[in-house]
């Protein structure tokens, strides 16, 4: 008798799980195939999707970056990193008192500020994210576009950001005078050509 009862319980449990699993899979398939999930960047993610993806990224970066050796980073790297950040990162991430360009404002997920990045990430993880990028987030990989020294320099710069005032940031990311003029000249020329 108890044996028959156990068998019934197991059978019911297995069947329930199978049916529930099948129904969920079918529901998921319908939502996926019908295109009901709005892929547009003006419609927010469902909270659970956003949090799930964000946490998956966190776990992945922590795991992938676990063995990256970190070099000594000093003031020279911070200064060098300021120029790298200005040229490649500020467009999407902005800085203290400085907005991103419009491309960085209405992306989803929003690239967001990096002033709090050192509270969220280790140096090796910032390096890994910069070097390899993040799939489906808009964060590009810089491995083939930035030297290793520049990548570490920008990590050094980001690590310093929480302690930067608006003025510190502007000083460290200022264009050198000569380059400033060259760029102004280029822009004037480009505008001339456009006309």
């Amino acid at each position: 008798m108890p044996q028959a009862q156990t068998r019934l319980i197991v059978k019911t449990a297995v069947l329930t799980l199978l049916i529930a699993g099948g129904l969920s899979a079918a529901a998921g398939l319908v939502v996926w195939r019908a295109g009901w999930y709005n892929i547009g960047a003006t419609s927010p993610h469902l909270g659970i999707v956003y949090k799930g993806l964000e946490q998956a990224m966190r776990y992945s970066v922590q795991h992938q970056a676990r063995k990256v050796p970190v070099p000594a980073l000093g003031q020279a790297e911070v200064v060098r990193g300021g120029a790298v950040y200005r040229d490649n990162c500020a467009q999407c991430h902005g800085g203290p008192g400085v907005a991103p360009d419009i491309h960085g404002l209405s992306m989803q997920p929003a690239p967001g500020p990096l002033v709090d990045a050192p509270m969220r990430w280790q140096s090796r993880e910032l390096y890994w994210i910069t070097r390899h990028g993040v799939k489906m987030s808009g964060m590009p990989a810089w491995e083939f576009h930035l030297s290793d020294a520049d990548t570490w320099a920008v990590v050094a710069f980001i690590n310093r950001m929480p302690a930067m005032t608006v003025r510190d940031y502007k000083t460290l990311t200022a264009m050198p005078p000569a380059q400033d003029q060259a760029q102004a000249h280029d822009q004037a020329q480009a505008q001339g050509e456009a006309r």
């Binding site: 927010p44 404002l105 929003a110 690239p111 967001g112 500020p113």
Partner: peptide, 25 residues
């Protein structure tokens, strides 16, 4: 509520009703 997401307000501010990261910038 829609417009503020198009200026990335939620990337620095936690805003009730708006999906985003836990941010305290």
């Amino acid at each position: 509520k829609l417009a503020l997401t198009q200026y990335a307000c939620q990337s620095c501010h936690k805003i009730p009703g708006v999906v985003g990261s836990d941010t305290f910038v």
